[in-house]
């Protein structure tokens, strides 16, 4: 189809949708600099006070640390389990392969709330208290399908042949995985890790139900919301947004660009 740049309707629509999509985020960031107690118009001038307040808030910084810890570890476990499962299922036709794939992917189609509620009840019964560990386990449940699907999709005929060649030449199982499979799949492994990290970092309902004293950042922000609108919440939100955007832009510029080549 010939590009028809001149259609004004299309550009008006584009502008309207971009406004709709970006308006809340822009408002969030702009009013995080508000020199006043309420993050609503009129804008009374810029200050960094709210950021200073957030950065000196101990509960918030602890929650931030907890979130980073849970995200880093749960993404790693998801990646490891997903990588092993994908390499196993991609190379031999096991009896029940389809069923296994189905079971591994299944949590993707279940609401996080249901996963959280099930885990909460089971942990109650076996006596595991709500904690960061419990939350981390839940995050692996939701991220394992994602990691598995990404890595499984990346193993094509070429990769399969290389793995077989390595084994035929006498490489041990761990050598095949570490020296052949992992480097060959590096872009997908990185993409899977960062996506899992972002999802865990943002996740609310599982963390809300499965933590009590040590909470993650989204849960801490949630408890902040109860005191109403405040530029401080804007400042935290802007920081969280900044971290996510940095991750996505890094991914876009490095891994996905390379993967497309």
């Amino acid at each position: 189809m010939r590009p028809r740049l001149g259609s004004p309707l299309a550009w008006i629509y584009l502008a309207a949708m971009f406004t709709f999509i970006l308006l809340p985020v822009i408002t969030l960031v702009v009013f995080s600099f508000q020199d006043g107690r309420l993050p609503v118009p009129p804008f009374k001038g810029a200050t960094l006070d709210w950021y200073a307040k957030v950065l000196s808030d101990r509960a918030m910084m602890e929650a931030l640390g907890n979130s980073l810890l849970v995200a880093a570890l749960s993404a790693f476990v998801s990646l490891l389990l997903g990588f092993l499962a994908a390499s196993g299922l991609a190379r031999v036709l096991l009896p029940g392969s389809v069923l296994m794939r189905g079971l591994l992917i299944a949590p993707m189609t279940v609401s996080y709330l249901i996963i959280a509620l099930g885990l909460l009840q089971m942990f109650n019964q076996i006596g595991l208290r709500p904690s960061l560990l419990a939350t981390g386990i839940g995050h692996v449940v939701i991220n394992l399908p994602l990691c598995f699907a990404i890595i499984y999709a990346a193993i094509g005929a070429h990769q399969r042949n290389a793995l077989r060649a390595a084994r035929d030449l006498g490489a041990a199982e761990w050598q095949v995985l570490l020296y052949v499979a992992a480097p060959m799949l590096a872009p997908s492994l990185a993409a899977a890790y960062f996506l899992a990290f972002t999802f865990s970092w943002d996740e609310f309902i599982i963390a809300f139900l499965l933590t009590r004293f040590d909470v993650t950042l989204p849960v801490e922000i949630w408890s902040m919301l109860r005191s109403g609108l405040s530029p401080e919440t804007n400042a935290v939100g802007s920081l969280v947004f900044l971290v996510s955007v940095l991750i996505v832009v890094t991914l876009e510029l490095s891994i996905f660009r390379k993967a497309r080549k």
Binding site: I21, L22, L23, P24, V25, T27, L28, F31, L38, P39, V40, P41, T198, W201, D202, F204, L217, P218, I221, W222, L225, L229, T233, N234, V236, G237, V240, F241, S244, V245, I247, V248
Partner: peptide, 24 residues
């Protein structure tokens, strides 16, 4: 899709900001 990557809680909060009685 930029705001897609904001935290879910923060995104809802920012709509509360925009849609409130004194919002933009």
């Amino acid at each position: 899709v930029l705001p897609f990557w904001t935290s879910y809680v923060v995104r809802s909060y920012s709509w509360a900001l925009v849609l409130g009685e004194k919002g933009i």
